[in-house]
Design a protein around this nucleic acid. Sequence first.
DNA 1: TCGAACGTTTACGTTAACGGCAAGGTTCTG
DNA 2: CAGAACCTTGCCGTTAACGTAAACGTTCGA
Lengths: 180, 180
Amino acid sequence: MSQSAQSTPPDLEAPLRKIQEVAAELGLTARAIRYYEEVGLLAPAARSGGAYRLYDPDDVERLRFIKGLRDDAGFSLTEIGQLLEDEAMRARNRDRFRTTDDATERRAIIDDTLVRVERQIDTLRDKMTRLAGMIEEAEGRRDHLRVHLAELDAGREPEPHVHTRSGSRPLAGSSGRTAP
Amino acid sequence: MSQSAQSTPPDLEAPLRKIQEVAAELGLTARAIRYYEEVGLLAPAARSGGAYRLYDPDDVERLRFIKGLRDDAGFSLTEIGQLLEDEAMRARNRDRFRTTDDATERRAIIDDTLVRVERQIDTLRDKMTRLAGMIEEAEGRRDHLRVHLAELDAGREPEPHVHTRSGSRPLAGSSGRTAP
DNA sequence: TCGAACGTTTACGTTAACGGCAAGGTTCTG
DNA sequence: CAGAACCTTGCCGTTAACGTAAACGTTCGA
């Protein structure tokens, strides 16, 4: 009920998968993946005799990273493009790295990539710092609200309303006033 | 060269500021702020005799939070709307809180807000966890690249190229292969 | 070999989040 | 009270990131 004609995905040797399979695994749509290719974020490793896009594990990893940068980090595709190396470069390096025997050239390629990865880490760390700041602010508001709650509960114990939450379940909110 | 007619912003008493002033401080545009109001994310506290929007410190805080949720956390305005209480509710609570003397009612308002703030914190923490995961992945790639670099430098020391980086500045990249 | 199931290109449509006017009202200062 | 400098409400335009549909090619099992 999921595969009748075409198949070959459970092939334990060929690490090349078609677009829909990859899309499903990553929680993307085929359209989105093609779009990413269109804007130069990635290019499939192969093209099954000039037609179908075929992705190898490396491609899938790159796609997963792209999705993370978009969903989790909230970057735009343009920003992502600046953060990653453009696909043309990646393809060239991939080839150069496999064909050359020159250790110096390999070193250059790796060195270049390392620099980029370190930049990515810095960018992500920066984002996380700002996010942590927001969390602290929110926690500040929460604590402030809890104090208010405690003050209210301490001042006087009103009629024992039926649904008295167990323990301390105070609350605070968008109004940072003590009220005049 | 920045204020000739109108002014009143350096007024140390009135905590009510006009849109452009607020926009400048937050790094937003007046248009964006009006748009946020249009989609129900906030409403100015006052309206100077039925015209100009006037924002109090509380409004500005809410705006700053909105901007953070958008820029730092990468949420859409729709998601932000679900995370914050809608403005109608906020206005009503704000009023109810100031007018009532009933401790029970105040408690209810604060409690409600607390729950929401705690939800916000959870959401932000969740996002940060995913971001941290991405950072770890990137660090993994970086370390992997460094290992490759070390291997290369160890195997043989090629011609002493001119620009030998000080210490260890290896690099890794988008190709996780050791090359056949 | 043939057809169901998938893939490809091309092109137009859609939604979110504003940008940028135009036409007119408000405010403070001189 | 004039007028510069801001503000207001429309309303149309734009960009990013896909969605969707049409017309056609590719694969592979029966």
